[in-house]
Amino acid sequence: MNRIMIEFTLWTENPEVDIDNINQIIDIFPVEKESIGDIKYYGEKNKLKRYADVSSLMYSTGYINTIEVEYALKKMLSLISPSISNLINIVNEYKLNSKFCIVIDTIEKPIISIPSDIIKVIAELSAEIDFDIYNNYD
């Protein structure tokens, strides 16, 4: 199985920031939203619980059948591009943290390339880049 997923997350530890209002301003869907104090159940049979210590909005491409990081990043950019000006303003105005998480789950060795136009957008959003790599190749 060769697949890559991109997740773009905005978050804050500031309880004064109204994440619901930010979500409405950004107007990108689908979104996974979490607010400080929300209870999330996880683990086997959802028996474990944790309280959210940050408010966040997470956008995802879902898994894409590819070994090329650039291809998956372009899918994410097509999702957020219509709202990029709003995103940049909101990140700065509310002092939000932002991150692109590149999740690689491949049998073949992935092609990891990030072109300058994508790097520019990542920089404008003051975003971090994380790689989660699950390699099944020898």
Results as ranks from 00 to 15, higher is better:
residue 127 A to E: 04
residue 49 K to D: 08
residue 53 D to L: 05
residue 5 M to H: 11
residue 103 V to M: 02
residue 90 I to L: 12
residue 3 R to C: 04
residue 103 V to Y: 00
residue 59 Y to I: 07
residue 73 L to D: 04
residue 3 R to I: 00
residue 45 K to R: 13
residue 11 W to A: 01
residue 78 S to H: 11
residue 13 E to M: 08
residue 87 L to Q: 04
residue 23 N to K: 13
residue 2 N to D: 04
residue 69 V to N: 08
residue 9 T to L: 03
residue 21 N to V: 15
residue 113 S to A: 15
residue 18 D to V: 08
residue 68 E to T: 12
residue 82 P to S: 10
residue 41 Y to C: 01
residue 77 L to K: 03
residue 75 K to E: 10
residue 116 S to R: 14
residue 78 S to A: 11
residue 121 V to M: 11
residue 58 M to W: 02
residue 97 N to A: 08
residue 1 M to Q: 10
residue 37 G to A: 03
residue 44 E to M: 01
residue 90 I to C: 09
residue 4 I to K: 00
residue 104 I to C: 00
residue 93 E to G: 14
residue 48 L to E: 01
residue 92 N to H: 07
residue 128 E to G: 15
residue 31 V to P: 04
residue 132 D to M: 09
residue 73 L to K: 07
residue 124 E to Y: 15
residue 118 I to F: 13
residue 47 K to L: 05
residue 60 S to N: 05
residue 92 N to Y: 03
residue 83 S to Y: 10
residue 62 G to L: 05
residue 88 I to V: 11
residue 70 E to I: 10
residue 53 D to W: 05
residue 79 L to S: 09
residue 68 E to S: 09
residue 19 I to A: 03
residue 125 L to Y: 03
residue 121 V to W: 05
residue 25 I to A: 07
residue 39 I to C: 15
residue 116 S to K: 15
residue 1 M to T: 09
residue 79 L to A: 07
residue 83 S to D: 04
residue 94 Y to W: 14
residue 20 D to M: 14
residue 86 N to C: 07
residue 72 A to K: 00
residue 120 K to M: 15
residue 97 N to I: 09
residue 26 I to Y: 06
residue 127 A to K: 02
residue 113 S to D: 13
residue 122 I to K: 06
residue 137 Y to F: 10
residue 82 P to N: 11
residue 20 D to V: 12
residue 85 S to E: 13
residue 87 L to R: 07
residue 124 E to R: 14
residue 134 Y to N: 09
residue 45 K to P: 02
residue 104 I to N: 00
residue 60 S to K: 04
residue 13 E to W: 07
residue 36 I to N: 02
residue 63 Y to M: 07
residue 63 Y to P: 09
residue 118 I to P: 13
residue 115 P to T: 13
residue 136 N to R: 08
residue 96 L to T: 06
residue 80 I to G: 02
residue 101 C to Q: 15
residue 74 K to L: 03
residue 117 D to L: 14
residue 56 S to Y: 00
residue 14 N to M: 12
residue 39 I to K: 12
residue 23 N to A: 11
residue 39 I to D: 12
residue 110 P to T: 11
residue 106 T to W: 04
residue 77 L to S: 01
residue 134 Y to R: 06
residue 61 T to K: 01
residue 131 F to S: 03
residue 98 S to P: 14
residue 132 D to C: 08
residue 57 L to G: 03
residue 46 N to C: 03
residue 110 P to M: 05
residue 85 S to W: 10
residue 33 K to G: 10
residue 34 E to T: 15
residue 110 P to R: 05
residue 57 L to V: 02
residue 20 D to I: 15
residue 87 L to N: 05
residue 65 N to V: 13
residue 112 I to T: 07
residue 132 D to R: 12
residue 9 T to M: 04
residue 14 N to G: 12
residue 79 L to M: 11
residue 17 V to M: 13
residue 121 V to A: 07
residue 106 T to E: 02
residue 27 D to G: 10
residue 11 W to Q: 04
residue 112 I to R: 04
residue 77 L to Y: 06
residue 86 N to P: 06
residue 40 K to S: 08
residue 23 N to R: 12
residue 67 I to T: 09
residue 68 E to C: 10
residue 30 P to K: 01
residue 28 I to G: 10
residue 42 Y to N: 02
residue 78 S to Y: 13
residue 42 Y to D: 03
residue 77 L to I: 09
residue 82 P to L: 08
residue 37 G to M: 01
